[in-house]
Design a protein around this nucleic acid. Structure first.
Lengths: 146, 146
DNA sequence: TATTGTTATACTCTATAACTATA
DNA sequence: TATAGTTATAGAGTATAACAATA
């Protein structure tokens, strides 16, 4: 009865922004809650995830999207907790490289494993859907961070 | 020469989380930057977007994912800026409804229009891709906020 | 008694500006 | 002189606990 092709209502950029914002927001809340359960603020957990390989303080500020002066306090607290440490850079004695410790890597693993709603949501997708969503994210990302 | 179907490397939930986190993070940074250009913190802008229709203080805390005590200060500042206002609820004299003002709605519109990287990224998608991404987001969202 | 919103408190995150030590 | 990291400061966000008003 229905025609082969029906009129598909076009998805506006505003609608797309709303949908992506809702998913991003829910993801972040789940992340923050999981971090809190392991004694970390979301900024601390995000910083931990950003120093899986050694990163200069200044570059870490860029990744976190905040001023360099903030990173001092964040890394101070991670260092106090034994989850990250500062190391001198070989080439330039001004820069300090921040690295995650084995304890930090373990806590980060636990936090990620503890994002129950996120796992529940993504585990519900089939192989094709996972591939499509992953590809779309990676396609759009370069323009979003340009 | 190549077979009709090739071995597609399966996308793990961890990879999906990384991709979605990167997009969500970049979106949020663009949102925060746009809000800042209009004199708002990201929390204030997010609160503004959450009161397009009147919302009780308590429910607003739920939407923002923070404790109810924080909402007092956030709404205080929005009220000082003339962007939102508190109104008594008819049914229950304990609750206060927060509503956006016309000025607030206009500022929110400007902030959203000012998210240049986000517009650039999403405008680059074709009609089919927009529909697929929108559908996937809305499919996954209920499980993410459950 | 339970709930809504507020206040008081303390800690974290945030940007700005000034400082130091390197380059 | 320019840059990396720190410190000092002030404002905003955050949770916890205690409170007044209302249900």
């Amino acid at each position: 009865m229905a025609p082969m092709t029906t009129a598909v209502p076009p998805v506006t950029t505003a609608e797309l922004m709303e949908a992506v914002a809702a998913v991003g927001s829910a993801y972040f809340l789940d992340f923050a809650a999981a971090a809190g359960r392991h004694g970390l603020s979301s900024s601390q957990a995000k910083a931990l995830a950003a120093v899986l390989e050694p990163v200069p303080m200044r570059a870490l500020a860029g990744r976190l999207g905040c001023d360099a002066s903030n990173v001092t306090g964040i890394v101070d607290r991670l260092e106090t907790l034994g989850l990250a440490r500062r190391e001198a850079a070989a080439a330039d004695r001004r820069v300090k490289m921040v690295t995650i410790t084995p304890e930090g890597a373990e806590v980060l693993r636990l936090v990620r494993a503890d994002m129950t709603r996120t796992h529940h949501a993504f585990d519900s997708l089939g192989p094709e859907q996972r591939t499509i969503l992953n590809d779309l994210c990676r396609q759009v990302l370069p323009l979003l961070v340009a």
